[in-house]
Design a protein around this nucleic acid. Structure first.
Length: 498
RNA sequence: CGGGAAGUAGCGCAGCUUGGUAGCGCGCAGCGUUCGGGACGCUGAGGUCGCGGGUUCAAAUCCCGCCUUCCCGACCA
């Protein structure tokens, strides 16, 4: 390609509203242009980079035994209602109403793929099956940002695996996991697979492939000692012992009118020097057996509900008159068929302040063992920098990062929801598919790579990603017919070699 | 959706406080010079001053409403 023929509109100065390095550089170097917020065009160089990344992904997917397909972007609303995600994902769904019906611009394709495979694959002999697609997906992001990092329309690779058993699903998952590592290695990214929470997609085992970055929107917790790493929704911390110490502070009840919540109580007792970490934050949830629990964490920590539990809602207070909103405390709850669980840090021997389970009253001087007891201990807070690693108790570090890919073991979640997502096993019995799904944000990867591979002068693409491998500069071809001839031959040969 | 900032030429900005018919740099076009390491000179094109309304003899400038974009937060398979 001759540069004189190339559409390469560079900018000396970056548009003022481009903040992230990748965004500025991709604009300035003429790779992309914005159409509207969160929607970008790819110019020739941008498209080259995009194709190069897609090809790496294709090669690794194919090697891993997956087959490429292309699915519709336009989905009938009904399949989203069937799976229930018309509701759970309604904030990001882009709907299209036409005279012929209601549609959704696909934000992801679990529903569609399950419908196809459900209809066309009916025997265990056809499993395992792994299909992938690389195509445009749509999400009505409330806040598109950082150029290609978070957009409303983006290209994504999604693979879906179908297996006959949980074990086989696990092995399909491992194959994909390994393929992901290869892909990110070829993109020359310092990625880190982390244990993650499944979020709206459901399922149990899953990993996020994170790339540390200044403009990351997530943090993951990482242990330098044992390589434990997990995102903040999933990360837990270890139980570290406290030295026992007797607390002789007296239990006192205080009249605290209109002081629901940690902040207001701290305000109330600020002259006595009360701080949030001396309070017990009490929260109610239903555990995975749907049994009611009251959880305790120090007042300065954010709560992280255990996996599989459901938070208490406003309306639930009607069913449990013993729980007084804003004044819940651990004292006396065990007698009321409510399980009290606490974060490990509540073992610290001290006198706590918490609600008195009656409106407008709080206790001070609550001592574990004397005034309240705890049935179960767990890690119930969002981890913070320095918390002990759950595996080796070394201090955890929080790393700011971007999610480049996400792999899930979905299990039976979608097979249960989509009619016909089943096959006949060797015994002639009908069974549900064990599914997995595996996403990579392809357009986002461009931004992630650009973030990691640039300097103050500009972009420095990894070899496999770069739009062109070589750039020939001829010195004054107009002056010398010999130079011109050589140049033309060189271009011809190079093009023939591909 | 909450908080903050900004919309003036393709890009970066000034002008607004104190109303008087819009300017700078880069880029772009023409001509000339220069040219084996990101050239220079002259000339020129290009603007509904985000949109709508109001005040005024007169609005980029003052007032009201709206829209858009960006940043922080909420949200995020």
């Amino acid at each position: 390609m001759r540069m004189s023929k190339l559409l390469l509109p560079t900018l000396r100065e970056a548009p003022a509203d481009a903040e992230a390095a990748s965004h500025r550089l991709l604009l300035r170097a003429g790779f992309i242009r914005r159409l509207t917020s969160g929607v970008y065009s790819f110019l020739p160089l941008g498209l080259k980079v995009l194709s190069n990344i897609e090809n790496i992904i294709r090669q690794e997917m194919d090697k891993a035994g997956a087959e490429e397909i292309l699915l519709p972007a336009l989905h009938p609303l009904e399949i989203w209602q069937q799976s229930g995600r018309a509701q759970t994902m309604k904030d990001v769904l882009m709907k299209v109403e036409t005279t012929s019906g209601s549609f959704v611009l696909g934000p992801t394709h679990e529903e569609v793929i399950t419908a196809i495979v459900g209809a066309e694959v009916n025997s265990y002999k056809e499993l395992p099956l792994n299909l992938y697609q690389i195509q445009t997906k749509f999400r009505d992001e409330p806040r598109a940002r950082f150029g290609l990092m978070r957009t409303k329309e983006f290209i994504m690779k999604d693979a879906y695996s179908f297996d006959a058993s949980q074990e086989e699903m696990g092995s399909s998952y491992q194959t994909m996991y390994d393929a992901y590592c290869k892909i990110f290695e070829r993109c020359d990214l310092s990625y880190q697979p982390v244990e993650a929470d499944a979020g709206a997609i459901g399922g149990k085992v899953n990993h996020e492939f994170m790339v540390p970055s200044q403009i990351g929107e997530d943090h993951f917790a990482s242990c330098a000692n044992c390589r434990y790493s997990a995102n903040l929704e999933a990360a837990t911390k270890a139980d570290i012992g406290f030295e026992s110490k007797s607390i002789d502070q007296e239990l006192k009840e205080h009249f605290t009118p209109d002081r629901p919540g940690i902040d207001l109580v701290v305000e109330h007792f600020k002259e006595q020097g009360l701080v949030a970490k001396d309070m017990l934050k009490c929260f109610v949830f239903f555990d995975s057996n749907n049994k009611i629990n009251v959880g305790l964490v120090p007042g300065d920590r954010q709560v992280r509900l255990p996996k599989g539990s459901r938070g208490f809602e406003e309306k639930d207070f009607l069913d449990y008159p013993d729980l007084v909103k804003g004044y819940i405390g651990p004292k006396g709850l065990n007698t009321k068929d409510i399980k009290v669980v606490a974060d490990y840090s509540v073992k610290e021997p001290k006198a706590w302040v918490s609600g008195a389970n009656k409106k407008n009253y709080h206790y001070s001087g609550l001592v574990l063992g004397r005034d309240f007891s705890v049935e179960n201990w767990d890690s119930l807070t969002v981890v913070e920098q320095g918390d002990p690693c759950p595996r080796c108790s070394s201090p955890l570090v929080l790393v700011r990062s971007v999610e480049a890919g996400h792999t899930f073991q979905l299990g039976l979640t979608y097979s249960k929801l989509i009619p016909g997502a089943s096959f006949t096993d060797a015994q002639g019995k009908e069974q549900l598919y064990w599914m997995g799904c595996y996403g990579i944000g392809v357009t986002r990867l461009i931004a992630i790579i650009a973030e990691e591979h640039h300097d103050d002068k500009g972009l420095i693409w990894p070899k496999e990603i770069a739009p062109y491998a070589i750039h020939i500069i001829s010195l004054n071809p107009h002056k010398s017919s010999e130079v011109n001839l050589f140049l033309n031959n060189f271009i011809k040969i190079y093009l023939q070699l591909g």
